[in-house]
Amino acid sequence: MSSVRIENVTKKFGKVFAVKDLSLDIKEGEFMVFLGPSGCGKTTILRIVGGLETPTKGRVYFGDKDVTNFRPKDRNIAMVFQSYSLYPHLTAYHNIAFPLRIAGKKKEIIKKRVMETAELLGIKDLLHKRPRELSGGQSQRVAVGRAIVREPTLFLFDEPLSNLDAKLRVQMRAELAHIHNELKITSVYVTHDQIEAMTLGQRIAVLKDGVLQQVGKPMEVYENPKNAFVASFLGSPAMNLLEGKKFSFLSSYGKNKLVGIRPSDISIVKSGIETTLDAAEVIGNEIILYLKLGDNIITVKTKSLKPSQLKPGTKFYIKFNKEKIYLFNADTGEKVKSS
């Protein structure tokens, strides 16, 4: 196990910045999640930590050791990929055994470790199968097995669950959390899925265009977003962001402001701001309303309506919970004041 320090790392591909001057400390045993939309540089930073890319500028430390120029094989890391990346010609057993064989471990030790790993992941009966005979979930379990079998100092996960179907994703998410609790190995996890980030991460680092936006515990970041991007990226459905100058009822917040409010902090009332229903989604006992207000669509999450009331064009009156309003500078997106 080891802590990781990323120090002023910049990575350029040609003239394009994939990562811009990023610094971050990951504590020993911590589960850190990099979260951001595609193309935000989160995978690049993971690959830099793993040694698959070299940074254009900056250093990477494992503990006190500068590993910036170390090859992946000298870093004792393990990585789980989105596309599983199992070796097609090897059975599940030999896939898991592969890193140990490369490390020159004895056959008996390899067998013992592979069996222990398979036991932990519940894949003992799959060991004789080849990757093409495995389903997505099974493949990803084998890939996780290949990663944990070597007892690495650092785990890297590159969107490992994005190729799985929704149900399996939830299940694997729980398993990954369980494995981390059991092994307590420092983990860096990259995802664009905020639910994965919120549930798995002890801390999350939100990235945009290669720039680190905010780092913190999931709920801290959710409740106290540093800027409009972080605010709108975390939370489902996303936070409503309204330009203050466009709406008279928001004028009290000042002209050059973005007013943010989460869909669950808007209530449907008898009299208030008038809106028209554009569309509605009924998800079990929750209803998400898309309400037209001028040119804007305001998302509202509610439980108190009947599906029969949800005809497009219906008038709805809404009220913002003023205590839950976030204010951002309309030019920079930086937070001005939080509720």
Partner: peptide, 8 residues
């Protein structure tokens, strides 16, 4: 990449 990380 996987092979590289695995020590190849």
């Amino acid at each position: 990449d996987a092979a590289r990380v695995d020590g190849c």
